[in-house]
Design a protein around this nucleic acid. Structure first.
Lengths: 238, 238
DNA sequence: ACAAAAGTGTTGTAACTACACCCATGT
DNA sequence: ACATGGGTGTAGTTACAACACTTTTGT
């Protein structure tokens, strides 16, 4: 362990220079088949008591910021995502009325069904991303940046499948991409590109009802990302 | 200003819970026409006195982490880059022997000639990125992630020009891309793609010696990024 | 029977790869 | 004169956008 850098006094933990508090906040994305959604919790204490906010909390001395984010998420929502993506630090001097607090922001993609129905925190709720309430602190800003980070990352990593059930239909996948990127795709072209890229594999099972009408089922193919020349020769992209 | 969240005691600034210190560190990339380089400073105090390290320092209470990074960079290297890109937070519990310190990492791209020759800190030096010394703290790790972040970002933003002089030749630009991405490109194709994309413009001036043999000069075309359909219709990328 | 959604096919075009060739310069 | 690096051209191929057509299901 480290040598301690503080002095414990009657007044608390004392340092030579003032220090900011560090928190983590998580943007949890979900997908209901049509709408991109976000998980929020209702604050039970001041400040912003009664307001909706991102799950998160204060960094402890024996954990990294990643561990902190996972822990807070578990405590407040009982969700344990496979991975958290760190996408920004928010440190405006006045962003927290309690004093100087900077926050490290993460996002995660989860399958809504995988979220245990009986949340410890029954004050957690999914919101459509386009009809969010006014959030506590600067969490609306954080959320906006989370969307951009997701938009950016989805180009490189086939992360979308983390939002979908094991099997899914093409239209579902397409809707998801469209909601995330804010664009619309041609049905045929989207399908072809997805299959050609090799990230998606057709299932043998019979088409099943997935919301509206039946559709062929697909699953993600984790091996083979199509052709991917790494280093060596040409593969331009800008 | 915020209400203060600490109590000033004889021992220093006291808080109810222990707090980590927050620092910023900057990876400054440069390019000498052939090699990608990084600016490091030699530490004058313990810990790691005499070791090379990334420029950076402690967050003050009246500044955001971005402001902190800019300030430290100015103080230690007198560089004022146009922008700093935040790419990661390093918070392993034992990363700093002084105690619990987490650092917010940024990178910047600068033109080496633009760096004032007479640095306040004459203990600052450029190092080829492939022959770095062993750095203080976890700065080797930070640097490794900085390279990946740059590699990732260069696909989306024409940031490369920030590393080059106002005018540059195609082979220079190509070498730069190759060094950053760790690949090799076909000369003709690279040239065509660069010009076709619209980010680069041919200069009228006569070819000039730029190191080795003469070559046509180019500059970056900040307007027009070629065709860029935003939202609305198709423009797939995965 | 019809509308709406899912799935498939086709075609013209643009972009990209892989070269081959030429030119200019330094030694 | 020749080797080296810079600049240009081209053919074959692939990838892509646009759109038409067919099939399936709910009402």
């Amino acid at each position: 362990m480290n040598k301690q850098d503080y002095i414990k006094t009657a007044e608390g933990y004392a340092y030579d220079y003032p220090r900011a508090a560090v928190t983590t906040d998580c943007v949890i994305f979900g997908f209901d088949g049509t709408q991109l959604q976000v998980l929020l919790i209702e604050r039970g204490v001041e400040p912003y008591k009664g307001h909706w906010a991102l799950p998160g909390g204060f960094l402890r001395m024996d954990e990294s910021v990643e561990e902190c984010a996972f822990r807070e998420l578990r405590e407040e929502t009982s969700i344990e995502p496979e991975m958290l993506e760190q996408f920004g630090v928010f440190s405006a001097v006045n962003r927290d009325p309690r004093g100087r607090v900077i926050t490290i922001a993460f996002y995660a993609l989860v399958r809504k069904e995988a979220v245990k129905g009986g949340d410890d925190a029954s004050d957690a709720r999914w919101f459509d991303i386009d009809s969010l309430p006014h959030l506590a602190f600067d969490h609306n800003d954080i959320l906006k940046e989370a969307r951009q980070a997701l938009k950016r990352d989805i180009h490189h990593q086939p992360v979308a499948f983390k939002l979908l059930a094991e099997h899914f239909t093409m239209p579902q996948l397409q809707r998801l991409y469209e909601r995330i990127l804010g664009v619309t795709f041609d049905r045929g072209n989207f399908r072809k590109k997805m299959i050609a890229s090799g990230v998606v594999r057709e299932e043998q099972t019979k088409p099943v009802y997935t919301g509206h009408r039946p559709g062929k089922l697909f699953s993600f193919n984790l091996f083979g990302y199509g052709k991917m020349k790494e280093d060596g020769s040409n593969s331009q992209e800008f």
